[in-house]
Deep mutational scan, measured.
Amino acid sequence: MATGGRRGAAAAPLLVAVAALLLGAAGHLYPGEVCPGMDIRNNLTRLHELENCSVIEGHLQILLMFKTRPEDFRDLSFPKLIMITDYLLLFRVYGLESLKDLFPNLTVIRGSRLFFNYALVIFEMVHLKELGLYNLMNITRGSVRIEKNNELCYLATIDWSRILDSVEDNYIVLNKDDNEECGDICPGTAKGKTNCPATVINGQFVERCWTHSHCQKVCPTICKSHGCTAEGLCCHSECLGNCSQPDDPTKCVACRNFYLDGRCVETCPPPYYHFQDWRCVNFSFCQDLHHKCKNSRRQGCHQYVIHNNKCIPECPSGYTMNSSNLLCTPCLGPCPKVCHLLEGEKTIDSVTSAQELRGCTVINGSLIINIRGGNNLAAELEANLGLIEEISGYLKIRRSYALVSLSFFRKLRLIRGETLEIGNYSFYALDNQNLRQLWDWSKHNLTITQGKLFFHYNPKLCLSEIHKMEEVSGTKGRQERNDIALKTNGDQASCENELLKFSYIRTSFDKI
């Protein structure tokens, strides 16, 4: 039985969820670079991206490699990797027998973001014989899940209580170790020597080791999670996991709180800001991140802002960003909400898709409305799209047979046209069989910064309504002859009103 693990408890099935942008060198404390989270699957090609990484700022997932063999891993080693800020997950990587050479110096898994409450997941690794993470000293947050690894031993010899604050939620089941077939031998045991430290858990006094050649490092209890030197002297209180010299914040392997210019500090002093819960960055760093993602459509890219001495992905609820200094300031009234469309555009074809934009005031991208039916549609669209004030790209209304009016965009005031449909149009209306009105132009103002209007096959939309939009939106004169079809717009509506004058002759039985 794995020490510190839980057996036999019912657990939810383990679901495996399925960018080499360097964020800056980590400095003297770390020998390499800070790398983003990685999802490495199918083959070993991307694994080489770990070569210079000291910190993975995010998670590391290595999974679904069915053609790899043990010899493929023999020359692979990433000794610079010290810390993973989120979680480490391995799933069905064939041929991998140990992690001792792959990650010989991995010391800390912070667990800032977890995989279903777990910071370390080893699942269905069919050839893994031992973990071998002999320098792993601290899992700051989260638990361990090690399950269905039929060859995995050296679990009962690990004292997880020396690595985690609590072992109650560890789930370590259905491994070879369960069948008591392992016969784990710690260093020196074969020669009758006791080389590794022994600890007591559940009444068992057991030597602690990761492999037959690597003991588990056990520091004096007084050192807590700070770690200790090879001689057993406690590291500085700002260290986490390990250090090369005692009581020196510049000799830590990793930091308990924050890293700044080669030393570990309790908090980031001005003019620095907390970033990702582990390091200090200056304003320029946060500003660069903001600008890199301002026009990016890459998933996970955030326009970072500053709030409460932190550089964070977005302002919290009730705050909006001051564009001059990136500071989050309290909103006066309802907060603006910028919604970034991942692929640059979004099609609204149902109430469900409209709900995804609920509360958005600025759309960074283009909207395509293609709704053919739905219950209580006008009210639903207004509830979900009615706060949109600005669209950076274009607005396209296409084959939306259920629409009679666009009044559900009740606050839309600006279409920038930074991206144009077919390279020309910022407003595009095609084949809307029941569209009769755009907006009530006596109450609604709309500016279209650039781009043209396109109207074709809107049989109940009168040309007068379209011409009014040209005047109000500032697009009059931009359109070419064929942009607004004269014969297919309003051709099934009563669009022309003329005053009919009647004269009559009164007659009676005795007068003409």
Results as ranks from 00 to 15, higher is better:
His28Phe: 09
Leu29Arg: 15
Pro31Thr: 14
Pro31Tyr: 02
Gly32His: 09
Gly32Trp: 12
Pro36Cys: 02
Pro36Tyr: 04
Pro36Lys: 14
Gly37Ala: 15
Gly37Pro: 11
Met38Cys: 05
Asn43Glu: 07
Leu44Gly: 09
Thr45Ile: 07
His48Leu: 12
Asn52Arg: 10
Ser54Arg: 12
Ser54Glu: 06
Val55Asn: 00
Ile56His: 02
Glu57Asn: 05
Gly58Leu: 00
His59Asn: 08
Gln61Glu: 15
Leu63Ser: 14
Leu63Arg: 07
Leu64Ala: 10
Lys67Thr: 11
Lys67Val: 09
Arg69Asp: 01
Arg69Ser: 06
Asp75Met: 09
Ser77Tyr: 14
Pro79Val: 04
Lys80Asn: 09
Lys80Ser: 12
Lys80Gly: 13
Lys80Ile: 05
Ile82Gly: 03
Met83Cys: 06
Ile84Met: 01
Ile84Pro: 00
Leu88Met: 06
Leu89Lys: 02
Leu90Cys: 13
Leu90Ser: 02
Phe91Cys: 02
Tyr94Gly: 04
Gly95Val: 02
Ser98Pro: 00
Ser98Lys: 02
Lys100Cys: 14
Pro104Lys: 02
Val108Ala: 14
Ile109Arg: 00
Ile109Phe: 01
Ile109Ala: 01
Arg110Met: 10
Ser112Arg: 12
Arg113Thr: 15
Arg113Ile: 06
Asn117Leu: 05
Asn117Val: 10
Ala119Cys: 02
Val121Ala: 10
Ile122Ala: 12
Ile122Thr: 03
Phe123Asn: 12
Glu124Ile: 01
Glu124Phe: 06
Glu124Arg: 05
Val126Leu: 14
His127Lys: 02
His127Phe: 04
Glu130Ser: 09
Gly132Val: 01
Leu133Ser: 10
Asn135Arg: 06
Asn138Glu: 15
Ile139Cys: 01
Ser143Pro: 12
Val144Phe: 02
Lys148Gly: 02
Asn149Ser: 10
Asn150Gln: 11
Glu151Lys: 12
Leu152Gly: 01
Leu152Arg: 00
Leu155Thr: 11
Thr157Asp: 07
Trp160Val: 01
Trp160Asn: 01
Trp160Pro: 00
Arg162Met: 09
Leu164Pro: 01
Leu164Phe: 15
Asp169Ala: 04
Asn170Gln: 12
Tyr171Ala: 13
Leu174Val: 14
Asn175Pro: 09
Asn175Gly: 10
Asn179Pro: 05
Gly183Val: 09
Gly183Lys: 15
Asp184Gln: 09
Asp184Glu: 14
Asp184His: 06
Gly188Trp: 15
Thr189Met: 14
Ala190Arg: 11
Ala190Tyr: 04
Ala190Glu: 04
Lys191Ser: 14
Lys191Asn: 15
Asn195Trp: 12
Asn195Thr: 07
Asn195Met: 12
Cys196Ser: 14
Cys196Met: 03
Pro197Trp: 05
Thr199Ile: 13
Gly203Cys: 05
Gly203Tyr: 14
Gly203Glu: 14
Gly203Asn: 10
Gln204His: 03
Phe205Pro: 12
Glu207Gln: 06
Cys209Gly: 10
His212Tyr: 11
His214Trp: 08
His214Asp: 07
Cys215Val: 08
Cys219Thr: 02
Cys219Asn: 14
Thr221Ala: 13
Ile222Gln: 09
Cys223Tyr: 03
Lys224Ile: 08
Ser225Cys: 13
Cys228Val: 05
Cys228Lys: 07
Thr229Pro: 07
Thr229Met: 13
Ala230Arg: 03
Ala230Lys: 15
Gly232Cys: 15
Cys235Gln: 00
Cys235Leu: 01
His236Asn: 07
Glu238Met: 09
Glu238Val: 04
Cys239Met: 00
Leu240Asp: 03
Gly241Pro: 01
Asn242Phe: 10
Cys243Met: 00
Gln245Pro: 02
Pro246Cys: 11
Asp247Val: 06
Asp248Gly: 02
Asp248Asn: 04
Asp248Lys: 04
Thr250Glu: 10
Thr250Cys: 06
Thr250Ala: 12
Ala254Ile: 01
Cys255Pro: 00
Cys255Met: 01
Asn257Gln: 07
Phe258Glu: 02
Tyr259Arg: 04
Leu260Ser: 02
Asp261Trp: 03
Asp261Ser: 06
Arg263Pro: 01
Cys264Asp: 00
Cys264Ser: 00
Cys264Arg: 00
Val265Phe: 03
Thr267Leu: 03
Thr267Ser: 11
Cys268Gly: 00
Pro269Leu: 03
Tyr272Arg: 03
Phe283Met: 06
Phe283Pro: 10
Phe283Asn: 10
Phe283Val: 15
Phe283Gly: 07
Phe285Thr: 05
Cys286Tyr: 03
Cys286Trp: 01
Cys286His: 01
Cys286Thr: 02
Asp288Trp: 09
Ser296His: 13
Arg298Trp: 14
Arg298Gly: 10
Arg298Tyr: 04
Gln299Ala: 06
Gly300Ser: 12
Gly300Lys: 09
Gly300Met: 13
Cys301Gln: 15
Cys301Asn: 06
His302Ala: 12
His302Arg: 07
His302Cys: 08
His302Thr: 10
Ile306Gln: 01
Asn309Ser: 10
Lys310Cys: 06
Lys310Ile: 07
Ile312Arg: 08
Pro313Lys: 11
Pro313Asn: 02
Glu314Gly: 04
Cys315Asn: 00
Ser317Gly: 12
Tyr319Trp: 15
Tyr319Pro: 01
Tyr319Ala: 13
Tyr319Phe: 15
Thr320Arg: 14
Asn322Tyr: 06
Asn325Leu: 11
Leu326Asn: 08
Leu326Trp: 01
Leu327Tyr: 15
Thr329Asn: 06
Pro336Cys: 06
